[in-house]
């Protein structure tokens, strides 16, 4: 009986465990640092909505999240990479943003994909 309860608890804790991400410093090319803060804040908001965790210590995370904002001819390319702790790329996504409000649907989509 004890063994059954222990195994059940183990499975339950595994199911309830949230994936933990550490956000690496945003890489900027031709974009002001304010936009790095804005997009990072958005990721944190959507993490709460979609049920995964953003941790403050790199060693505590399951995955790294690398965000890049690169100025293009018109707009900014938003590139988001999900990497293992050894930096191996797991998944990435890139979408143009023509104004800061365009960050919202991009992060919403990415958040649902990585949760």
């Amino acid at each position: 009986m004890f063994r059954f309860v222990a195994i059940t608890l183990l499975f339950a804790s595994a199911l309830w465990a949230k994936t933990e991400y550490f956000i690496l410093p945003v890489q900027l090319h031709g974009v002001h640092g304010d936009y790095a803060k804005r997009i990072t804040a958005l990721v944190k908001e959507y993490a709460a909505i979609d049920g995964y965790a953003i941790v403050t210590k790199k060693e505590d995370c399951d995955y790294l999240l690398q965000i890049k904002l690169i100025r293009e001819e018109v707009g900014v390319a938003v590139i988001i990479e999900k990497r293992k702790k050894n930096k191996k790329l797991v998944w990435n996504y890139g979408h143009i943003a023509y104004e800061p409000n365009d960050f919202i649907p991009i992060i919403s989509y990415v958040s649902r994909k990585i949760k």
Partner: peptide, 28 residues
């Protein structure tokens, strides 16, 4: 272009075309 999505559109039969999200159609 270069792995970055610049736009997208759902195209339906019978000419019923709808863009999703304007310039951000690729996200959804």
């Amino acid at each position: 272009k270069n792995g970055i999505i610049y736009g997208g559109v759902n195209v339906y039969r019978e000419g019923n075309t709808s863009a999703s999200g304007g310039g951000l159609s690729g996200w959804d």
